[in-house]
Design a protein around this nucleic acid. Sequence first.
DNA 1: CATGCTTGGATAGTGCCAGTATCCAAAGGA
DNA 2: TCCTTTGGATACTGGCACTATCCAAGCATG
Lengths: 217, 217
Amino acid sequence: MRLAELSERSGVSTATIKYYLREGLLQPGHRVTATQAAYGEEHLRRLRLVRALIQIGKMPVAVAREVIAAAEDTSLDHHMRLGAATRALPHAPDPAEDDEATGIARRSVDALLEQLGWPGIHDEPSPSLGTLVASVAALVRLGYPCDTAHLLPYGRLAAELAVADLDTVEEQPTTAGQIEAAVALTVLHEPVLLSLRRLAHIQESARRFEGRRIPPD
Amino acid sequence: MRLAELSERSGVSTATIKYYLREGLLQPGHRVTATQAAYGEEHLRRLRLVRALIQIGKMPVAVAREVIAAAEDTSLDHHMRLGAATRALPHAPDPAEDDEATGIARRSVDALLEQLGWPGIHDEPSPSLGTLVASVAALVRLGYPCDTAHLLPYGRLAAELAVADLDTVEEQPTTAGQIEAAVALTVLHEPVLLSLRRLAHIQESARRFEGRRIPPD
DNA sequence: CATGCTTGGATAGTGCCAGTATCCAAAGGA
DNA sequence: TCCTTTGGATACTGGCACTATCCAAGCATG
């Protein structure tokens, strides 16, 4: 198929596809003549993945390139490839280390990981840990409770989700499919989870507060 | 305190504070003379909230203004204020309605909400529903399973989280505090949850795949 | 009081990012 | 043959979150 058809079937403008080609998010098509190239189903699939990562996953273009490159690095084993892809994902900047709230947050998080029984997080450091500490530090600074008791439900539920996710990953027949699934599901289940949580907030808020007038305090 | 001190205590540059004042994210300080203004503790707190929403919550500045304005709209009741604030939060653009994947996604989501027993979602439509459908549609397009069986664990866990969150909200003594807590916790628990999920992925992936070489397929 | 530094408000400018538009020579179709 | 289409290279655009500059009005010091 030619570029124009790839554009039509994916719903992405030719100009944007050319941009993604320039940025290395898509393999160049197979050159047929000096001015024509052919694209296959795998280009279409890749393009859909890229679009999903960027539009749904809100990922910068450069990051999407890194994530895809890591997922395709065949020099690593299964687990490492997942790790490399995860590490390329967008993260909050590392928390300011000299900050008081950061110190409290770090101790809270350490206690939490201890209780969850997640070993080896510190051996194989992930930027997710930095994001976690930075987020907890922001909560601390605003005075919201961030002790282990409050965080533990989040950790337990996260562990349940991880099991469900990796079950889905293992449904994929090929290794390449499993890696792609891991990346896609890590990223695309995030908005699913967050919007379900917000809908659940609405449900629960209606149950508790519906019609309650605001007291003048 | 003067602007310079507010800057020092919050770690935000004076130029950025001036920018937030211009954008209406912060109340102007109390004017002391023609060229000097005084800020109080409530300005510091508000500034920390704004920074958290923008930096940790990755929220555009204009959206943060809307969210805060909605949270402070005293003409609404408790539940409506939460809803208004939630509705102002960033969301994916609404899914293309003429798309095949969107149709499948919408039916999946409807079935899910049915099973979860969440009534009234369609009476009081939230942009979160659009985000949910758009995300599921992206998964459908890539061929990943999105039937109710796969989505239900996410929904159940989201409901559990909502209960825990609103428990924390109700710990706040004042109504204004509860609304602010609802906004702050909705937004700031998101990165907490997502980074815990990614850390859990690493744990679970290590357990299942550690050291497994990639078969050549 | 004079003088020089600081303060806060207004205005304009910067850098980055994700596309978008234009141009062009070579191909393909009527 | 002639006119449209194609894909690649290049330059431009608009939005966003700051950031730098300017300025007149304080304040601090001798």
